[in-house]
């Protein structure tokens, strides 16, 4: 049965999600930050983690964005095959939601119209939108505003199959080490392995929207996530990059089939303000 969804419903939800994501972290991120504040060994690192707790409380109570970089809006729209949209073009409806959310939520407009000419669009549009078709008659929207302090420190590596899992580990560690204090640690590290050049980058971005409390279902990937988190936290970078034992809160890895000749790896770094809100319409 075809189900009709009014696109104004999509706009309304995206508007609310923009405001929610920039003022409240998801429960898993909140828990991870609390745990980190307890376990951090460096006194200065601990102090910074406590300030991040305080920052979250102020953000929620006084409605001040958690971070002034309220990001470029990344939207994953998983559309059920039985859905029919009524109203404006879906892409316009999503962007209108971003426009309204960033205006009404007093969020920073950080998008420029052209990467070279650099004129601000003044409404934080367009969003970066990834569509996929899925089973069913619902639409699942994931909104992940992405700040660029950490986005700038992300990397893609086109490894050779012979580089194997050791090559992947090295790629992750190198990226985190180079990012250091610039990416506002403690970070969340999203990794994509496999696919093509662009697919592995998308996998890495999707990995960042996964809960930081859950591991991959694939046994060797779960082991890799745990091992990399341990190794990253031995780098010494610490909260704010000022030294300590909490450099990352989680390493989330997504994989996909790839070509016989390749081993693409993307490492998408996110700061401790790893924002994502999910709604199903």
């Amino acid at each position: 049965m075809i189900r009709t969804i009014k696109t104004e419903e999509v706009t309304k939800n995206i508007r609310e999600m923009c405001i929610e994501a920039n003022h409240y972290l998801s429960r898993d991120m909140d828990n991870a930050l609390k745990k980190a504040a307890d376990s951090e060994q460096a006194p200065l690192g601990k102090k910074i983690l406590c300030q991040l707790q305080e920052n979250l409380i102020i953000a929620g109570e006084d409605m001040i964005p958690i971070c002034q970089d309220t990001g470029m809006a990344v939207i994953f729209a998983e559309i059920g095959q039985e859905v029919h949209f009524d109203g404006m073009l879906l892409e316009e409806a999503l962007n209108e939601g971003v426009r309204q959310g960033y205006r009404e939520g007093f969020l920073r407009k950080s998008v420029v119209k052209d990467p070279i000419l650099r004129e601000n669009t003044k409404d934080n549009t367009p969003a970066v939108i990834h569509y996929s078709m899925v089973e069913g008659d619902k639409v699942k929207l994931t909104l992940a505003p992405k700040g660029f302090g950490s986005e700038n420190m992300s990397r893609i590596f086109m490894l050779k199959p012979a580089d194997g899992i050791e090559g992947v580990k090295q790629a992750i560690l190198t990226t985190v080490e180079d990012a250091g204090p610039n990416a506002c640690p403690p970070m969340v590290v999203g990794v994509g392995i496999g696919g093509t050049f662009e697919k592995c980058a998308l996998l890495a971005k999707q990995a960042l929207t996964r809960s930081v409390e859950e591991h991959s279902q694939i046994p060797y990937v779960k082991d890799l996530e745990e091992e990399m988190l341990r190794k990253i936290n031995c780098l010494g970078i610490g909260p704010g990059g000022l030294g300590g034992t909490t450099t990352a809160l989680a390493v989330n890895i997504n994989t996909y089939p790839t070509h016989i000749a390749g081993l693409p790896v993307a490492v998408n770094i996110c700061c401790h303000v790893n924002r994502h809100v999910v709604r199903v319409i």
């Binding site: 910074i48 300030q51 991040l52 305080e54 920052n55 979250l56 102020i58 953000a59 006084d62 001040i64 964005p65 958690i66 971070c67 002034q68 970089d69 700040g147 302090g149 204090p181 506002c184 704010g240 990059g241 000022l242 700061c271 401790h272 303000v273």
Partner: peptide, 9 residues
């Protein structure tokens, strides 16, 4: 350095 990501505080 100020604490990155603590803009509300």
């Amino acid at each position: 350095a100020a604490v990155g990501g603590a803009g509300a505080l």
